[in-house]
Design a protein around this nucleic acid. Structure first.
Lengths: 131, 131
DNA sequence: GCGCTATATATCGGAAGGCGAGATATCATG
DNA sequence: CATGATATCTCGCCTTCCGATATATAGCGC
């Protein structure tokens, strides 16, 4: 929804490919596993994402193998893709951190109307505090 | 793109409202500020999000005020909204953490073809190591 | 052999969501 | 009086999501 943002689906595909090349079906299972089941990337979503990421140069076809008569088409992350993923991870961590902080702040004064001078850019750039 | 996921736009609107009630235009500026300019929520996006979040019971109209002859329509987060935001923040932090970890893992063996026995569910449930 | 599940690819079309553009209105600045 | 900031909201195009569907191989139970 904003300038240099990538979709959730794209983010998880890149994450699944970040450590090693995988094929479509493998990405599907990997995303589900690495998110603890929280994220279920759908088949119908996958190929569109794969096409877009390829067109954007963030991933590239790696190789094709045949296992038990079934074709596997592998993709790998490009350098640009790794950079984009890292940047997006920072943005997400920052957003998550900002959300947590604000929830805590909101709980301090739940019934409070507005509270003047409450917005002196507390923790300006967010930029998360984990890792 | 998956089960209980909310959109990026919804996430940032909830985050902007987390500490105190705000009106539409205020949300717009707040999202931009709290993200350091990374996220620009568009006017055309805002009202759709506001309607959906209201319909889902995650936010609610708070009050209306007039400043300098201009109407301000305030919204606040409901308890459900705070819970949903907190959950989403956890998911995002976990995803960001997983991405970072995998980028690091991928760099260990960049030229490696596949590496056998590389997938024994290394670092199984992510669930990040922050907070 | 037959049906079912898992693995594996890919496409289609409807629905949901994002966003540029425009309409409307007040106030301040130049 | 024009421009820009503040403030609301709608319309329609386009992108993205995803359920359904099609196709094909291998393995298991019956």
């Amino acid at each position: 929804m904003a300038s240099r943002n990538m979709t959730q689906a794209a983010f998880f595909v890149l994450t699944a490919l970040a450590d090693q090349p995988r094929h479509g079906y493998g990405i599907l299972r990997e995303v589900e596993e690495l998110s603890g089941g929280d994220v279920q990337l759908r088949v119908g979503t996958l190929y569109g994402v794969l096409d877009r990421l390829t067109a954007d140069g963030l991933i590239a076809p790696d190789r094709e193998e045949v296992h038990d008569g079934r074709l596997r088409r592998y993709y790998r992350v490009t350098d640009d893709g790794t950079r984009a993923l890292a940047a997006e991870a920072e943005r997400m961590a920052a957003g998550a951190s900002a959300a947590r902080q604000r929830i805590a702040e909101g709980r301090k004064a739940p019934a409070q109307p507005v509270n003047p001078a409450a917005n002196p850019s507390t923790g300006p750039g967010l930029a998360g505090g984990m890792a």
